[in-house]
Nucleic acid binder design. Sequence first.
DNA 1: ACCCAGGCGTTCT
DNA 2: AGAACGCATGGG
Length: 223
Amino acid sequence: MRSSILRLHYTLFEEYGDLGWWPADGPFEVAVGAILTQNTSWNNVETAIESLKSEGALCPSRIAAMNMTELESLVRPSGFFRQKARYLKQLASHIEREYSGDITAMSSLPMERVRAELLSLRGVGPETADTIMLYALRMPSFVVDAYTVRLLRRLGICDGDSHASIKAAFEEALDRDIAKLANAHAMIVDHCKSVCRPTPRCVLCPLREMCSEAEKQEERVSD
DNA sequence: ACCCAGGCGTTCT
DNA sequence: AGAACGCATGGG
């Protein structure tokens, strides 16, 4: 899988270059965005983040102290607003209580410890935890999302492989380099949003070569 | 009038 | 362990 990942990374980088993810003002805003974007388009998340900002509410202390109804109304545009308000509240309280409101304090702890701690919070699953680690704490933890799995399957790079093994393969192939891991996920998401749709149009796709090779391989198998 | 979006938790088989 | 379902808004 290693050489396929390297080729994918190289080809995507040739097309997209450095995308400079995650778009946010600071580490805590990254974490908030990671929760708000769960199964939700980024456009809706931006609206919610803007409304939080306009209230000066984008910090752990303010969110931890805010009343639930107000928080719900601020994050409403991002959908699932009752759950997400609860999740943000819990995250903010945790950061406030354990790290005096400074989320970056977590980055000096071992990765496994940080991941387990994030996963223990309601509303923080594998993808959200890895997103916070990679883009807020700048730790080399690759983010495997639905896009990644769909793309890798289509390219025949993975088949039934678990998220965990895909994650590990990227981290090894990209040498645990934070900038590379961060940009790799960004390129995959960006690519899948615009080009590699559920029903693909491969004519101008930078990955069309890899894609057609995978299709040929598929035909051989089904013979 | 659909369909989908940068998931997660709960509740089943 | 893995599938099915609810959660909710806004844009194509």
